[in-house]
Amino acid sequence: MSLKIYHNPRCSKSRQTLNMIEEAGSPVEVRLYLDEPLSAAEIKELLEKLNLTDARALMRRTEAIYKELGLKSETDQAALIKAMAKHPKLIERPIVVKGNAAILGRPPENVQKFL
């Protein structure tokens, strides 16, 4: 089964994860999510595949936009998902999907179980 990676080539962890997948010879589809942002529905699907019930667990809370939008005090899950859809830089990376499961490649070694 092929893998799909939500990838940011400027991120060292994302590059390391993609390299690990390629070195393992696994077929992989690369989605540059900053160039092709995810919809709110896609983010919800990823949260389910990651077994995350809190959207904040998929957010980069140190990004300036997180603070600018006042997301620290936001409790509405739909609002958090909408913010990630509008500002994809907020999404933690990389995310690797295999079938109905997904894993966050932080650290990249997390992805070994998919290879």
Rank of each mutant, 00 (worst) to 15 (best):
V97T: 09
G99I: 04
T62L: 12
K67E: 13
L50A: 10
A79F: 10
P108H: 12
S2C: 07
P88F: 01
I95M: 09
R15S: 10
A79S: 14
E109I: 10
R61K: 15
K98T: 04
E92Y: 01
N110T: 08
K98Y: 03
L104W: 00
I5D: 03
G105C: 07
E92N: 11
L115R: 05
N19G: 07
R15I: 07
K82M: 11
L47T: 02
R15E: 02
S39Y: 11
K113V: 15
P108M: 09
S2T: 14
E109G: 13
Y66G: 07
I65W: 00
A83R: 05
D76P: 09
T17H: 07
I95K: 05
S73C: 01
N110W: 02
Y6G: 08
V28C: 13
D76F: 09
I103N: 01
K72W: 03
F114N: 00
D76T: 10
E92L: 07
A85W: 06
E23V: 02
L80V: 08
Y33T: 06
E22Q: 15
K13W: 03
L80K: 04
K72I: 06
A57G: 11
K49L: 14
E63K: 10
K113F: 00
E48Q: 15
I91K: 01
L80C: 08
V111F: 08
T17C: 08
V28Q: 07
E42G: 13
G25C: 12
A24E: 01
E29V: 15
V111H: 05
A24D: 01
R60E: 07
A40C: 13
D54W: 12
L32M: 08
L69R: 02
E22F: 00
R106Y: 06
R56K: 14
A41N: 12
P88M: 08
P94C: 08
L34T: 05
L58M: 15
R31I: 15
L46M: 09
L38N: 09
N110A: 14
V30M: 06
G70E: 02
Y33K: 03
A64D: 14
T62K: 14
P27M: 05
G25N: 06
L34S: 03
E68W: 00
L71N: 02
Y33Q: 02
I65E: 05
I81T: 06
V97W: 01
A83S: 11
K44W: 13
R56P: 08
L38V: 10
D54P: 05
E42A: 14
L71D: 01
I103V: 15
E22P: 03
C11G: 10
T62D: 14
S26K: 15
